[in-house]
Write a protein that binds this DNA or RNA. Structure first.
Lengths: 145, 145
DNA sequence: GTCCATGCAAAGATTTTGCAGGTCC
DNA sequence: GGACCTGCAAAATCTTTGCATGGAC
């Protein structure tokens, strides 16, 4: 019921950047923002939005990714899926069993990165931290409790 | 000249686990251990080892990955490649321009993870941290210096 | 000798592209 | 009205699989 993250935000972001808000694009955004706490694959989005051309779904996802409006999640097995990018830098806590994902905010990672910065010749531009584990539900299922 | 990481290590690891050391398998291992500091894609391995069936190369890489003898590197653009897994847990410093990768050892990441462990219901089993930046060479090329 | 591994080729899965036509601003 | 976007279908990647044959132990 609560649409705490309405499409409008993404729509205006895109419009501000000079992208046209077409009907297919709007539908993708609407669907994506409806995923709130779930991550999804490009395939799932394409399947759910079957009135829209596959290519358009892929193109729109790439656009949203480039604009930082969605982010990639790397699963433990290397699988790739997407997720609404709630504002601000954050990391992911991913269930190795069901793929459920939560955002986590870890300020002290910055300190770690800062230490890397001081000890390398690289000019750092970003980082990605994914933490893997069993979510409460899968943990229970696993132990049989 | 210096083969600081000879195939032998990987070979005996596999043998100890009861896997047969066949000629094709040995050739893949030999090539992989020759990559020392470079990462490579499955495609590159298959291309370099064209006397071996594609499927075998893929199967062997998966085997090495499952055994922890090589590890995956996630590039900034989401691309996936592999790399010799030097012993012990480590992270990667990846050039966003050329893909060059260095291992980095960050003990204090454990503290961050420990803090996550204390504040979540998840049962943590692992994590992945990739740090992105421009390597010295690409940094120079970029500024035109 | 037995079981596992290989090779091939085909199938599968996923993503990109060319281009004619349509739509937003 | 012009530039950008879409849809389709084909192509391009990348990876897996079935099955008969061959090789390691």
């Amino acid at each position: 019921m609560t649409l705490s993250f309405p499409p409008d935000g993404l729509v205006s972001e895109l419009r501000d950047q000079g992208f046209k808000i077409t009907t297919p694009r709007y539908q993708v955004i609407e669907w994506v923002t409806g995923q709130q706490e779930d991550n999804f694959t490009a395939e799932e989005a394409a399947a759910a939005l079957d009135s829209i051309g596959r290519a358009t779904v892929y193109r729109t996802l790439k656009l949203l990714l480039d604009q930082g409006l969605i982010c990639r999640v790397i699963l433990n097995d290397g699988g790739i899926c997407y997720r609404l990018s709630h504002k601000g830098h954050h990391h992911h806590l991913v269930c190795v069993s069901c793929g459920a994902t939560e955002d986590i905010h870890l300020d002290d990672v910055e300190n770690v990165i800062q230490r890397v910065r001081e000890s390398t010749e690289y000019e750092l531009v970003g980082h990605r931290l994914e933490v893997y584990g069993f979510c409460p539900r899968c943990k229970s299922a696993q132990t049989g409790l």
